[in-house]
Simulated assay, not measured.
Amino acid sequence: MNFPIEKLPNIEFKTNEPLSKYTFTKTGGNADTLAFPKTREELVEIVNTARENDIAITIIGNASNLIIKDGGIRGIVIILPNFKNIEVNGDKVTAEAGATIIDTTIAAQKSSLTGLEFAAGIPGSVGGAVFMNAGAYGGEIKDAFESAEVLLPDGKIVTLTHDDMNFSYRHSLVQENGGIVISATFALKQGDGDKIQAEMDRLNELRRSKQPLEYPSCGSVFKRPTGHFTGPLIIKAGLQGRIIGGAQVSMKHAGFIVNLGGATATDYMNLIHLIQRAIKYQFDIDLHTEVRIIGEDGK
Rank of each mutant, 00 (worst) to 15 (best):
I101Q: 02
G191C: 07
A35N: 05
N53D: 13
K26L: 15
A35C: 15
E41S: 13
L160H: 06
I196Q: 01
I141G: 02
H228E: 07
T104C: 09
V150L: 10
L206E: 10
S125P: 12
G124Q: 10
A254I: 12
G178S: 08
E42K: 09
A119P: 09
E41F: 05
A263E: 04
I5A: 15
L116M: 15
F131R: 12
V181T: 00
I180V: 10
L239I: 08
G138V: 03
G61R: 02
G219T: 11
S183I: 02
T185R: 14
N53A: 09
G98C: 03
K210S: 08
N270Q: 09
T94K: 10
K299I: 11
M165F: 06
I196V: 15
N10S: 10
F13H: 02
E6V: 13
N177G: 11
T27A: 07
I57L: 12
I5F: 12
T33V: 15
A265P: 10
H171A: 12
L233R: 03
V77L: 09
I78N: 00
D32S: 13
G127M: 01
G191E: 03
P4F: 00
G231F: 00
T266Y: 04
Q175T: 07
H162L: 06
M132G: 13
V158I: 09
L239R: 09
L274C: 12
E290D: 12
H253F: 07
G138W: 01
V130M: 05
T100Y: 04
G255Y: 00
N177A: 03
H253P: 05
K223G: 04
A56G: 10
A136R: 06
M251L: 09
L19P: 01
L213T: 08
R224G: 04
T15R: 13
G193I: 08
R202H: 09
F167K: 14
G238L: 15
I182L: 11
F36K: 05
A263K: 02
L239F: 13
S220F: 01
G155C: 08
T266K: 13
A148K: 14
A108K: 02
Y169M: 12
N2H: 14
Q276P: 10
G61I: 01
T161V: 14
F167S: 14
M251Y: 05
I55N: 14
Y22I: 05
D164A: 07
D103F: 05
E296H: 09
I244D: 07
L113A: 01
E52H: 14
E117A: 12
G72W: 01
I106S: 02
M1T: 11
I101P: 00
